[in-house]
Design a protein around this nucleic acid. Structure first.
Lengths: 112, 112
DNA sequence: GCAAATTAATGATTTATTCAAG
DNA sequence: CTTGAATAAATCATTAATTTGC
């Protein structure tokens, strides 16, 4: 995990939490000034440098995109299977939009 | 327990145990195929549909996260208080007001 | 002990995001 | 800038635990 004499930065849970909150709040690629401010704020929770913050945002943004791309790729690969299961599933997934227009109580196709 | 004409799925203890075990084993957001497999496996222990499995994983994941988040938030609040008492230098609240991001839609000035 | 009342868990819906494609 | 696809967050609604007065 995070050895005492670790050669690289190990964010504390608090630091991660705050960074993620900032990311969600719209800080995607902070500029130098923002990075400095963030760094001094987060240094309360543990050792941290500006470059750590810089890298964190770079990596986080990249990995979020990666995640999405992988998901989409997987989907494509699964399309065949999904087609096959189409007639057998009672699935809402994925990202089901049940626009319950008017009350159609069984929200899903139910092809059991 | 589970009323006869219940309007919603009531998992049996066996089903819950297996679902939790799967979750611990790394199944966090199963895709349609996995959901179907899980469903047919669990249907041995009682009535169950794909959408129940889908919802269960969504809810379980969200609520695990919630638990962690609450814990960290508590810690943060404690530390903030301690900090405030110790130095009552009031953390100059830099550029990033993380205004709990579900408040105002345009999230951030975006100085990119 | 036992229900009615109240609170906590949790299944099911809706709403707000995210990234990327067009 | 808008939209599609997928999700995660927030919320609603019902079931289970529990508390309370008798």
């Amino acid at each position: 995990m995070c050895p005492a004499g670790s050669s690289r930065w190990c964010p504390t849970p608090e630091q991660v939490m705050i960074l993620e909150e900032m990311y969600r709040s719209g800080v995607k690629t902070p500029n130098a000034t923002q990075i400095q401010q963030i760094t001094s704020h987060l240094s309360f929770y543990g050792k941290i440098e500006g470059k750590n913050v810089f890298y964190w945002f770079q990596n986080h943004k990249a990995r979020e995109r990666q995640k999405l791309r992988r998901k989409l790729t997987k989907q494509l690969q699964l399309q065949q299977q999904q087609l096959f299961h189409h007639y057998f599933d009672s699935l809402p997934s994925p990202a089901f939009q049940h626009h319950s227009y008017y009350n159609s109580p069984p929200p899903f196709p139910q092809v059991t």
